[in-house]
Simulated scan of single mutants.
Amino acid sequence: MKKLQITIYCASSPNIHPDYFSAAKKLGELLSTISCTVSYGGGASGLMGALADSMIHHGGDIKGFIPHFMIEREWQHPQVPSMHVVQSMHERKELLLANCDIAIALAGGCGTLEEFMEALTWKQLKLFQGKLMILNTNAYYKPLLKMLDSAVRENFMADDSYEMWEVHEKPEEIFNAIVKQK
């Protein structure tokens, strides 16, 4: 059976509600129990750090993709065994989606939103064939989902656009959807 390639987009901010950290840690723990490689932005703080710490602690396979300028600022996670240094954010985004079976958005700021929206755009253009999932902890993505609904209703996106993403409220729901897919 093919080893799943999962990309996770998430926040680097350490100043967020503990529920988001719990969700990232739980998802890392769950994903560590199946045959998959998780790729992420390579950071050590915020949800990125929590996800990586959880994957490492539970014996999961995680690799980071981090631009050189972030290493200069010492933002990289020092314990991630496979850290790929790239030249730009554009290169990082491209590599995170290369060979990706599932891309998951956890809560995050502009960077997370931008990365997920680019993946969604690539999916719409049929440049990305994988699944897109949103972990909607504490209804964080409610405004984005409302905006996407508006885009469909106002005909900026096709009626079948809803099929391009899945929304799950809990890490266990995402995990169950992934396991069911395998």
Score class of each variant (00 low, 15 high):
H68S: 12
F69S: 02
F69W: 10
F69K: 12
F69N: 07
F69D: 09
M70Y: 15
M70N: 09
I71F: 03
I71A: 06
R73D: 11
R73S: 12
E74R: 14
E74Q: 15
W75D: 05
Q76E: 12
Q76Y: 05
Q76M: 01
Q76A: 15
H77Y: 01
P78C: 04
P78T: 02
Q79C: 07
Q79M: 05
V80I: 14
V80H: 05
V80Y: 04
V80L: 12
V80N: 10
V80E: 03
V80D: 08
V80Q: 05
P81T: 08
P81Q: 02
P81E: 02
P81K: 03
P81I: 11
S82I: 00
S82C: 01
S82D: 14
M83I: 14
M83R: 00
M83N: 07
H84M: 10
H84R: 01
H84F: 08
V85P: 09
V86M: 12
Q87H: 02
S88K: 08
S88M: 03
S88Y: 02
M89G: 12
M89Q: 04
H90C: 06
E91P: 08
E91S: 00
R92N: 12
K93E: 15
E94C: 05
E94S: 14
E94R: 14
E94V: 01
L95R: 11
L95P: 07
L95V: 06
L96D: 12
L96Q: 10
L96K: 01
L96W: 06
L96M: 14
L97K: 05
L97P: 04
L97C: 02
L97E: 04
L97G: 09
L97F: 06
A98I: 03
A98S: 02
N99R: 06
N99T: 09
C100G: 07
C100Y: 04
C100W: 10
D101R: 06
I102E: 09
I102W: 08
A103S: 09
A103F: 07
A103C: 13
I104M: 01
I104E: 11
I104C: 09
A105K: 01
L106G: 08
A107Q: 12
A107Y: 00
A107V: 13
A107P: 03
G108Y: 01
G108V: 06
G108H: 05
G109A: 15
C110R: 00
C110L: 13
C110K: 02
G111E: 07
G111H: 04
G111S: 10
L113I: 13
L113F: 15
L113P: 02
E114Q: 09
E114I: 05
E115Y: 03
E115G: 15
